[in-house]
């Protein structure tokens, strides 16, 4: 039986080749064929989740919460030192210098990345902004969010911090960070479908040792993950409770 492996569509596309290498590594260590399914966006991923067709997933915190609570997925590991943080940025020449300067009608460029969007919406609440009094523009990726700021199509942009920091020099230098989250405890998780049974412990064992052989170390580097660490069920439940607590509008 072929296992389906996927990655949350919010990953930086420059790591796409790396995730293919990762899939090959998975296949070799699990000793079963694995198919790397690349979803075009969150809608496609969510359809696959509903159809119960994913065996192994590197999931963003939002989807991880649903997969664990509603579908019984098991948390296998998380990346070391890689919390999901968000950045709200403006054009470098913008008159906006603090969240409190934002007014109703603010034009926002965002993506369909659910956790980044949520964290950023929370960070504009102190200015009395909410989805009802801002103008929201969906962009396909963070480079396009940045371009919306440069072209003055939006006043602020919502970014995954790690992707923001990775923007090319010429783009990055024309943007200014308004606020950066420092939450530390929300992160992506590698999850497995419960039907994998005994293969789950086997998978965890391989992931924790991944950096110890040359091929594994290379595959990690190619997806910008230092190492995997194990997570126990309570760590995951804690993160999910946090997500549940955050998904309320003020």
């Amino acid at each position: 039986m072929t296992l389906t492996f996927t990655v949350s569509p919010d990953f930086n596309t420059k790591y796409l080749p790396g995730w293919f290498v990762f899939n090959t590594w998975l296949q070799r260590h699990l000793g079963v064929p694995t198919h790397f399914e690349v979803f075009d966006g969150f809608d496609e991923l969510h359809r696959a989740m509903a159809a119960d067709s994913i065996d192994i997933i590197y999931a963003n915190p939002f989807d991880a919460a649903r997969l664990v609570r509603d579908h019984g997925y098991v948390a296998v590991a998380r990346p070391v030192g890689r919390p999901d943080e968000a950045v709200i940025a403006t054009h470098e020449g913008s008159a906006i210098h603090a969240v409190e300067d934002l007014l109703p009608g603010t034009r926002i460029a965002t993506t369909d990345d659910p956790d980044v969007h949520m964290m950023c919406m929370i960070m504009i609440e102190p200015a009395d902004l909410n989805s009802g009094n801002v103008a929201m523009f969906r962009r396909d990726n963070y480079v396009l969010v940045a371009k919306s700021l440069l072209k003055n199509e939006a006043d602020i942009g919502f970014f995954l911090a790690e992707t923001f920091d990775d923007l090319s020099g010429p783009i990055r230098s024309q943007l200014r960070v308004l606020v950066r989250s420092q939450i530390y405890v929300i992160n992506h998780l590698l999850l497995a479908h419960p039907r994998l049974g005994a293969q789950i412990d086997q998978l965890r064992g391989h992931l924790l040792q991944m950096g110890n052989d040359a091929k594994g170390a290379m595959a990690l580097q190619d997806v910008a993950i230092k190492a995997w660490e194990s997570v126990d069920q309570e760590d995951v439940e804690f993160m999910i409770d946090l997500m549940v607590a955050l998904t309320v509008t003020a």
Binding site: A127, F238, A250
Partner: peptide
Amino acid sequence: VFASVVPNIRNGRIVGYTSVRRKPSRTK
């Protein structure tokens, strides 16, 4: 703060509570 408190439900039982607070709106 703007606080949100959720019950920690494990195996169908409330075993504790988590509170998350964020920066509130000055108007509120």
